[in-house]
Write a protein that binds this DNA or RNA. Structure first.
Lengths: 121, 121
DNA sequence: AATTTTGTGCTACCTTCGCAGGACAAACCG
DNA sequence: CGGTTTGTCCTGCGAAGGTAGCACAAAATT
């Protein structure tokens, strides 16, 4: 499974955002420290910090200096049905040897295929 | 539905890649010209060209000067089951007011949750 | 009260990448 | 054959964003 090395703040943001929306990180649960995340993903502290800041601005996370960063109480989770479907898709795609990136490309292509999505604006 | 303006070569690549894998673009079907794509998405020609080049390197597309770019015969499509699931997920998520980006974040979070995906390497 | 933890801020540097817009060669079409 | 289409290549430019490393303030911990 091609799990590319993460290097951008946006990717880190998305990683945690997904974990929270999917319910993998529950209310009040603590995230790794900025420094830890920086070490884990081999990125600069500033980059990890930027990601956390974005999450906070989105209301997904609450930050208190010296107390760390925790999932905001009442952070909006996706409906269970959506998470279930996501799981099913992930399994099916993985079994078919399709990479995460390709799966995502398919989602984008399929998203609102009858509507006016994807079309140039 | 927040359909952000596309500006990067990577995004363009992914757009066509998804369309091909999902079967929206069939074998031999012609893609817009580089110049046309550049105009459509308001990007530089070089950027559109770069995207097409990537697609060609992936074997998804065949390019012949002056004849344009076409979907490669036998370009690997995703199994119908995967596409169906992707469609179902897109519908479900959209109905639940979840954005494409969030849906994708969920997919990434859920992808190989029991395995060693997502974890820092 | 002293120390440690943790998020934040800063500077200077460097690489990546998109842009404009022109030029070119190959192959298509009439 | 001659004009046109189309992908490719080039230069110079600028913006965006990641990096390293250190300093700082506030709150937690002891």
């Amino acid at each position: 499974m091609t799990t590319p090395v993460i290097r951008s703040a946006e990717e880190i943001t998305q990683l945690f955002r997904g974990a929270i929306r999917a319910g993998q990180l529950g209310d009040g649960e603590r995230l790794p420290t900025v420094r830890q995340t920086a070490r884990d993903f081999h990125i600069a502290q500033a980059t990890a910090a930027k990601a956390y800041k974005t999450l906070e601005q989105e209301g997904l996370v609450v930050t208190r200096t010296a107390a760390g960063t925790r999932v905001a109480p009442g952070a909006s989770r996706a409906p269970q049905a959506v998470v279930q479907l996501a799981r099913a898709l992930a399994e099916s795609a993985d079994a078919a040897q399709i990479t995460v990136d390709d799966t995502i490309a398919i989602i984008r292509a399929v998203w609102g295929a009858d509507e006016t999505a994807n079309l140039p604006g």
